[in-house]
Structure formats: C-alpha cells, structure tokens
Design a protein around this nucleic acid. Structure first.
Length: 664
DNA sequence: CGAGGGGTTGTTTTT
DNA sequence: CAACCCCTCG
C-alpha cells in the first residue's frame, strides 16, 4: 500500500488531532479501519490486533464526522466496550464516550425499557438469572408432576437448562429432548406444559430471563417496523465483536439492526468459538457473507502477541480441527522458549510448582499482574488457591463461583427487587422464607394478600401465625422505610435492607457470617455508583462483578499487583506475559463431559487453543501424573490428548518426578 | 406446619 | 464437597 491515509482533522474547538493510520496498522488492519460503509466480515486470529482495529475504526468514524451516538459497538462484556471506547478517546477525544456499547443482553435491556411498549412490554420488568428461573420451574414442576417418585424427572436446574437451550438454538423442545436428553423422552408432554406455564408466569409478573431479553428484542425489531426504523436511524454504524460466539437470535438481531443501512461489521475468529453450550453457532460467522452480499472479507493473520515458539505449537494443535477456515497465524516476533509440559507427581506438587515458578518469575521482574493461571473448570484451582494463600501470593479469581450467586447476596438483592417490582414473586418468596416461622405452606396466603393489597409493603396488615408476626413486622417496616425513598439513589436502600437483614444473616449462616458480612458492604459500595435502582439491578444481573473485590474502581483493581486465576472462558480476549495451564489431563481438559460427542471435543480443542494463545512469552502446561477423581471415583492418569496432537517437537518436557518417587 | 438432619446426588463453561 | 431431596422430629 503506497498511498498514505494520514490525515488531519479538527473536531470543534479541540486542537487538531493527527492519526498516522498507515504507520500504526498493517495493511489488513488498515483496510478494516478505512472501509466505513457496507458489510464487512473481519476474521481476526488470536492476538492479531483485533481490539486495536476496532478502536481505530471507531476513531476513524468519529474523525470523518460520524456522530458517536450513531455508532453501536456490541461486545462480549461491557468492560470490553468501555475499554475500547477509552482507547478510542485517547485518539480522537472524549466524544467517543458517547458511543453506545455493551453486550447484546445489556443492549436489549435498554431498548426494551425504552421501546418495549410497542409489543406490550412494561418498562419496569425485572431481570432474573438462571437460578431464579430454576426456582420458578421448581414450583411449576410440583404443580404439574406431583408424583415425581415413580419416574425420574429432570431437576429444576436441568429444566432451566433444557428450556434455555431450545430457545438459544432455535429448536423445538422435542428435538432437544430427543437428541440430548433421551432419558426424559417419556416426560415430553409434561415438559411442554411446564415451559408454557413458565412463559406465562414470567409475563404475568413482569420478569425476564436472559433468553427473554434476546427473544423479545428480536421480536420487537421484527414486529415493529417503526421501532426498527427508529433504531436504524439512530445507530447508523453497527460493529459486533466476538461474532463466533453469537447464537441464532443474536445473529438475527444483528441482521435486523443492519438491514436498513448495511453499515455493519462483524469481527471474530471461528477457531475461538467456545460457547456452543449456550447456543453459540459458528455458522453465524461462516455464513455472514452470504447474508450480506456483497460483503468484504478481511483476514487478520499476523499475530503480534506471542513468540513464534508458542505459535508453532498452537498452529499445530489446530491442524487437528475438523472444520473451520484453515489458517496459520504468523508472527514477526523472535523465537522464545518452547511451551513447557510440566509433569508433576500429584496435585500438591503441581500447586507447588506453579507457586514456585511464579515467585521465580517475579524475581526476574515479571509482575504478578502479568501472570495468569488458566484451567478448564472453576474448581480445578481449589488446591492451588490454598497454596497461594499459604505463600502470601495475592490473586484474583475469575469465573467459577460468582459473587452474585452467593445466597446472602441474592437475599439482600431480593429485597431491592421487591421494591422495584412488587409482582416479582421469586424475590418475595426468597425474602419471606428467611423469616422465622414462615415456610412453604404459609406462602400462598401471604402471596394472595400481597396481590390484593393496595400497599403490599405494609405487611403488618397481613394476617399470619403468631410465630412469624415479629419477623414480618420488621420486614414491613424496612420495606415501608425504603419505599419512601423509592425513586432515589440505591445506596440508602441497600443500607436500610442491610440493617434489616443482618440478624437474619447471623441466624442463617452462623459459621461464616463475618465473611458474608463483608460482601454486603461490597454491595453497598457498588450501589453507590448508580443513580437509579433499576440501573443498579440491571447492571448487576447483566454484568456481574467478576469477584468480590471487583466492586472497587476497576482502575485500582488493575493496578494492584495480583496474579489472575481464571477459567479459560473468562480469559478470552486477554493476554499475559506468562501463562500456566493446569490439569492437562484426560477427564479434566478435555473435560469428561465432552467425551460423548465429537462436536464437544472439537470445542474442547478450541478451548485449549484459546488458552494457549494467551501468553506473550512463557507458556507452562502442567499435569499431575496421578490424581484421584472423587467425582467419577476413578483415577486420572492420562495426559491430555491435545498434547499428543501438538507433538513433542514443539514442546519441551520438564519432569518433576524424582527418580526415587514411589508413585512413579 | 416448620426446621433440621441425614442420605444421596452429580459436578463445565456464562449472559 | 456441595446442593438438593426426603424424612423425621418438635
């Protein structure tokens, strides 16, 4: 490319900004940045500067006079969007902060609250998570199938999973049951009844689960041409990141948003598709060009992140993939150390190795925040966590157990939800059952009263048994105190309910209540950043903090020198100087549950690929040669098949087992 | 009718 | 090693 795209732009009174596009970007990136109109598919390999490309493209759009409000940036997490917009801001100024961005779910939330009325949606709906859905389903199940004894019936969590899958895959219930849950075939008709009642229940009580947000947004765009036109006029440029991980509904939403103006760019990497369990469909990215013809396809294949030694290994791994674009990433970075395969005697030795090596790296000048330990499932790091604590190595854990799913957090939030949406029966149930003397049998009576009452918060007027009177009166007082602030800031509300909840917390979680108490303070701190109650609740439901310390300002958290422990899923899109992948054993990574289907194994390989493409310099893959697996009762002793696929040529083996070790 | 205990289950990954 | 279910006791 000989001509230069360098250009000078002045934005209002701001001093002239100068972006040297052709100097900063390679030819493929440059093309993606400079093509502003029409449909584009950008296949961006791992570490190929995808984020940078998006950032520059936003900057470029703004520079050429596109108003930031008319750009929509759909990303996998809201954090990713904010991060990009921040970076774009340093190029062209703060104006980019006004770009709309977030996940499909958070976008759906905003649009539905604003325009949902067009298809009969109340703007005050509550967002419920998978656990809440499971609770609702449990009730319905009991109603529909009172004699669960004779035959095995799916549990509440499974029900929720099945129904979510049918929606996300866009398949009829029958088909999902027949292909993936054959054991429940005989219950098909019951399940159909349950799912119908479930939908009715949610509509009646103004509740929306994650799937409903997407389904309803799609419906709104499809059924209301006015809204679709309004939105197309408002968002004239649409960019969707991580497109390989969208499901059918999200893809349809994307198409509907782009249908009018066709200024749509989707970015992704089919080799990094790792969310098929929640309905993600690689076909979306593969078929995008045929849906938006003529479509420009741009490939970013130069890797800027990793050493050549690491890329050699990851390229080799992907030659075993059964489908997808064949591609080989190349790097102009020098060779580095080959990825090390570290063979340990047992789990304890693995943990010791990781901790030890991390300390050595720190000695060598690699800060803790530049190191990550990755694993397949949340619980794989338990032992390591103990070891790190013992050695005083600070770490943050992402993925796995979530702050929000802790019972005490859900308890506290349920009070706020009731305040926001008095017909949120799931939340009512949760807070009522906490009260001494109230059990499942007295609930229907209280619900009936709540439904009929003018002021459902005045529970003192509700007749209940003597034993529960005091507790209910206390709740009544807290709710009425809070409802007097109902339109105000969320923080004082959190305070009111924390005070109310404290005795209950002590009573229900006697053993570890001080620890849980600290979490409640976190909720209070987070709430201080929000101006409205449903802004706060929606954000929490859609963008849950990654760990209990995430409540602090992100900037601070990132500056703090802490090691990251993360599931591979949560590590997507990120990079570190040095990365450890632990538990590279058959049954762990790949996981047992992937053995049944070829397609699941393919996804496990892509997952390993994502993990291995995170480091810049050092990659350590470890496994214990011997591990008892309490889940299966068996012994795990076979190294991950993915190590075989890569082959010893690209790896370096470190044997930690002492020759005299009897377990050898 | 509610609470608390004991046995049994089955354990990916996330918005 | 939970969370969940079922059962018994108060």
């Amino acid at each position: 490319m000989t001509h230069s795209y360098q250009l000078k732009v002045s934005e209002g009174s701001r001093e002239a900004s100068l972006i040297d596009y052709s100097g900063e970007l390679n030819p493929a990136q440059l093309e993606a940045v400079m093509t502003l109109k029409g449909p584009i598919l950008c296949i961006a390999g791992a570490g190929s500067g995808k984020t940078k490309t998006l950032v520059f493209r936003v900057a470029r759009l703004v520079e050429t006079g596109v108003s930031p409000e008319s750009i929509l940036l759909l990303t996998f997490t809201r954090k990713a969007a904010l991060n990009m917009l921040d970076r774009a801001a340093t190029l062209v100024g703060k104006a980019t902060q006004r770009v709309a961005g977030g996940t499909y779910h958070s976008f759906a939330n905003l649009v539905l609250r604003q325009y949902g009325a067009a298809i009969g949606i109340s703007p005050a709906f509550s967002i419920i998570d998978g656990g809440d859905c499971a609770d609702i389903l449990n009730h319905i199940r009991i109603e529909v199938e009172p004699k669960t004894r004779e035959t095995r019936f799916p549990q509440k969590r499974t029900l929720q999973e099945i129904f979510s899958k049918t929606l996300n895959r866009g398949l009829p219930l029958r088909e999902v049951i027949m292909t993936e849950y054959e054991q429940f075939q005989e219950h098909l008709s019951d399940l159909e009844v349950i799912v119908k009642k479930f939908q009715e229940y949610k509509v009646k009580h103004h509740l929306m689960d994650y799937d409903d947000l997407l389904v309803n947004l799609q419906m709104l765009l499809q059924d209301s041409p006015e809204v679709r036109k309004t939105l197309s006029a408002r968002f004239r440029f649409v960019m969707a990141d991580e497109y390989q991980d969208t499901n059918m509904i999200q893809a349809r939403i994307t198409c509907l948003l782009g249908a009018e103006h066709r200024n749509i760019m989707v970015v992704g990497d089919d080799a990094q598709s790792i969310y098929s369990f929640r309905g993600a469909n690689v076909q979306n990215i593969l078929e995008f060009p045929s849906q938006f013809q003529p479509c420009k396809t741009i490939r970013l294949e130069q890797n800027f992140r990793s050493t050549r030694s690491i890329l050699n290994a990851t390229n080799q791994l992907m030659t075993h993939a059964k489908q997808g674009f064949a591609k080989k990433l190349f790097s102009i970075r020098p060779d580095g150390p080959k990825p090390a395969v570290v063979v340990c005697g047992d789990e304890a030795e693995q943990s010791m190795f990781v901790a030890q090596r991390i300390l050595e790296l720190r000695e060598e000048g690699v800060g803790l925040s530049k190191i990550a330990v990755l694993f397949r499932s949340g619980f794989h790091s338990y032992h390591l966590e103990l070891e790190l604590k013992k050695r005083n190595i600070p770490f943050a854990k992402w993925g796995g157990f979530k702050f929000l799913e802790a019972a005490h957090i859900k308890d506290l939030l349920a009070h706020l939800r009731v305040l926001q949406n008095p017909s949120d029966v799931v939340a009512w149930q949760r807070i009522l059952l906490l009260i001494e003397g109230i059990g499942t049998k007295s609930l229907p009576g209280i619900f009936a009263w709540i439904g009929a009452s003018e002021n459902p918060y005045n529970l003192s007027a509700c007749k209940v048994s003597k034993r529960s009177r005091d507790g209910l009166d206390r709740l009544s007082k807290a709710l009425q105190d809070a409802s007097r602030h109902a339109d105000g800031l969320p923080e004082p509300l959190v305070e009111i309910f924390s005070d109310y909840y404290l005795p209950l917390l002590k009573e229900h979680y006697l053993d570890d209540y001080p620890k849980r108490l600290r979490d409640l303070d976190q909720v209070s701190i987070i709430s201080g950043r929000f101006e409205t109650l449903h802004g706060f609740l929606s954000e929490l439901a859609l963008e849950p903090p990654r760990d209990s310390r995430d409540g602090q300002l992100t900037v601070d958290a990132e500056k703090e020198d802490r090691l990251v422990l993360s599931t591979v899923h949560s590590a997507k899109g990120l990079e570190w100087h040095s990365v450890f992948i632990i538990w590279a054993l058959e049954g762990r990574f790949p996981s047992f549950s992937a053995f049944r289907k070829q397609s699941d194994l393919e996804e496990e390989r892509r997952l390993m690929y994502v993990a291995m493409t995170r480091p810049q310099e050092n990659l350590f893959i470890s496994y214990p040669i011997y591990a008892y697996d309490p889940a299966s009762g068996g012994i795990l002793a076979k190294p991950s098949r993915f190590l075989d696929e890569i082959g010893s040529e690209f790896l370096e083996r470190w044997d930690l087992i002492r020759p005299s070790d009897p377990t050898r």
